[in-house]
């Protein structure tokens, strides 16, 4: 048994149906082949760099699992057959990074909510993704009390994140995966 880092790109349609179930697609396949899932957490939801099976966006699930070397082949086969997993990447890992455990456990709390993924045809954000919305939000907050039209003027890239921020609460413990403590200390400094 050795430790693997496995990243999955999940179909947003499956994520909309419920995060616990969506997570279960990947972890279910892993556990079916005797792998022990240490951590599993939502890494990000983002626009794909290129469309995969017609999808423009996807949700990334990052897991650390312990599995036998001979289980990887069958796992890969099942993942290829699973249509809701758009892409996957399984790498050997030296240890579970610090903090990964906490992030994974936080997902199992009742108050953890997954934001509803934006629609595929959501307008593309402005060229620079990260700094732009923050700056816009800051400007908006400053200007809003003074003049109302500043908010209207804000470009479409603002609608990207906060617009559909309603999320459904997660089922308390629908996951059977229990993240155990890492056997090895993370070596990354």
């Amino acid at each position: 048994m050795s430790l693997y880092e496995a990243m999955f790109v999940l179909d947003n349609d499956a994520v909309r149906a419920g995060w616990a179930d969506a997570k279960g697609i990947a972890t279910g396949i892993l556990e079916k082949h005797g792998a022990k899932v240490h951590t599993a957490r939502r890494w990000d939801e983002r626009r794909l760099a290129y469309p995969i099976r017609g999808k423009q966006r996807g949700t990334y699930l990052l897991t650390f699992v312990e599995a036998g070397a001979d289980a990887i082949g069958p796992i890969s086969r099942d993942l290829e057959l699973e249509e809701r997993v758009l892409r996957y990447l399984i790498l050997s890992a030296e240890g579970v990074p610090a903090g990964e455990d906490d992030l994974s456990k936080a997902e199992q709390g009742a108050d953890f909510v997954v934001p509803e993924p934006p629609r595929d045809d959501e307008p593309r954000p402005a060229r620079v993704e990260e700094p732009a919305p923050e700056k816009e939000a800051g400007e908006k907050a400053e200007e809003k009390p003074a003049e109302g039209e500043a908010a209207e003027k804000a470009p479409a890239d603002e609608a990207e994140k906060p617009a559909e921020a309603q999320a459904q609460p997660e089922g308390a413990s629908a996951e059977e995966s229990k993240p155990a403590l890492a056997t090895e200390a993370p070596k990354e400094s």
Binding site: M7, R46, A49, Y50, I52, G58, Y60, R87, L89, L91
Partner: peptide
């Protein structure tokens, strides 16, 4: 190349 496989980075463009 790993990032490209997961569509985190583009192959072209």
């Amino acid at each position: 190349k790993r990032a490209r496989h997961l569509a985190l980075l583009p192959f072209v463009g």
